[in-house]
């Protein structure tokens, strides 16, 4: 999927990455650790749930080597994520802030379309 910057709306940006909405392809772009990943709405929500379900405390407590990183697969992102605990926290923050903006946009649209006399663009 090509990135067309003309139709990207930035949903949220942190110092570690950003999430954009593509109004042309109806998908989201996640920019994280120098890579770009495109996810449709359903995959994005699912991916966020996956990230949220990672138990960071048990990662930190477990001293075995394989628990230092988590490998996350998203079939549609066509890349896999290898993340350490700090990166997971950064990603969790970014995704939940972006998720909030998505929800906020829905609420705003709903409010705007509530009155029949107000037209919404």
């Amino acid at each position: 999927m090509c990135r067309n910057f003309n139709c990207l709306d930035e949903l949220y940006r942190t110092e570690f990455g950003a999430v954009y909405q593509c109004n042309l392809k109806n998908c989201y772009w996640l920019e994280f650790a120098g890579e770009w990943y495109s996810l449709n709405v359903s995959d994005f929500l699912f991916f966020k749930k996956e990230v949220d379900s990672i138990d960071i405390v048990s990662m930190l407590v477990d001293s075995s080597r394989h628990s230092d990183v988590v490998v996350l697969q998203s079939y549609r992102a066509r890349r896999c994520f290898v993340l350490n605990a700090v990166e997971i926290l950064q990603l969790k923050d970014l995704l939940s802030a972006a998720r909030f903006m998505i929800e906020l946009n829905s609420v705003i649209q709903e409010c705007l379309s509530y009155s029949p006399s107000t037209s919404v663009k």
Binding site: Q21, N23, S42, S106, E110
Partner: peptide, 14 residues
């Protein structure tokens, strides 16, 4: 901005 979420689903996350 388009409401991609509601285009996809009518259910609130909760």
């Amino acid at each position: 901005m388009k409401d991609l979420l509601r285009l996809k689903t009518s259910l609130k996350e909760e």
